[in-house]
Design a protein around this nucleic acid. Structure first.
Ligand code: MN
Ligand code: MN
Ligand code: ZN
Ligand code: ZN
Lengths: 151, 151
DNA sequence: AACAGCGTGCAACTGAGTTGCAATATAAAT
DNA sequence: ATTTATATTGCAACTCAGTTGCACGCTGTT
């Protein structure tokens, strides 16, 4: 992300009422440099206040529905979330490591107009676009070192 | 797919020994018009012969490693598999329905050279590319009819 | 006070995919 | 053909992400 997005402003703009849990969860996600898993969010958030995982999942669903967050699936198991703010974090591709499951943002490639650029005229109009490159990341690839665990 | 791929030839080309289970699983996938889930494959294959789900997963892993199959994740839960044969089923984007989880192949858009076209110069070279459009499909969208179950 | 709406927590559940190990099949060696 | 090694399969038990049901608490309304 270029600069940090203000969680409160993002919620206000998207018509979502703030509250302590929502504030915290969005703050955790916004202050991460890459897309994060629910597990990561939960661990980070619990350093500040006690939150149940069900509450987290419900808030994540709400944020995705209200387009505050983008949700991405990968073969690595759990879903990942990132801020969807068009100004601070425009749509971009991701590199996913087959070994460790880590997901890197390719923020220098803008995908806002990817449908036009690739000339994709679909009958169903998409609400979101997800371009993922799969391979083995730097940490895992050279010399097939022990598969790097996610922090 | 343009025309059906011959499972035996595909395995031979990729250096995988055929056997009854592998033949059948690959045939099920090759004769489907869209990317399929393990559950679907298992149900279809069991009409012909008895196969354990663990065997299926192991064969799928083998096929993906040997680049006989492409594997794709979506928010809809289970992974989906399709034939990776470059001639008969070149790399293409997919449309995934948020309601029913169905995945449609956008076979008319070729992604073989997508990295060049989008000018993505990544340090980690990707072994696979997965472009997904997310939204609500025809069956689910108009009039918010009962969420269409996958066959 | 009574009621409704909303957000939360807890426990139990679901369903995809995995792991360990024994049993079987296939291929190679004697 | 009998033995030996190697690859493949099946079964049960397990892991782990995400979900469901329901009771409880809070806030505002009649
Ligand atoms: Mn990203
Ligand atoms: Mn496809
Ligand atoms: Zn890695
Ligand atoms: Zn649908």
């Amino acid at each position: 992300m270029k600069t940090l997005c203000d969680p409160r402003e993002l919620m206000a703009r998207q018509g979502v009422d703030p509250n302590p849990n929502r504030d915290l969860i969005l703050k955790v996600i916004a202050s991460s440099s890459k897309a994060v898993t629910p597990k990561f969010i939960l661990t980070a958030a619990r350093k500040t206040r006690s939150i149940d995982k069900v509450t987290l999942y419900r808030i994540l669903d709400l944020f995705v529905a209200r387009r505050i967050l983008r949700r991405m699936a990968s073969v690595a198991g759990s879903l990942r979330y990132e801020i969807a703010c068009a100004e601070h974090n425009p749509l971009h591709p991701h590199f996913v490591c087959r070994e460790c499951g880590d997901m890197e943002c390719l923020s220098d490639v803008d995908l806002s107009d990817v449908r036009e650029r690739l000339n994709m005229k679909t009958k169903n109009l998409p609400e979101d676009i997800d371009l993922k490159l799969e391979g083995v990341c730097q940490k895992c690839s050279p010399r097939k070192r022990r598969r790097h665990e996610e922090k």
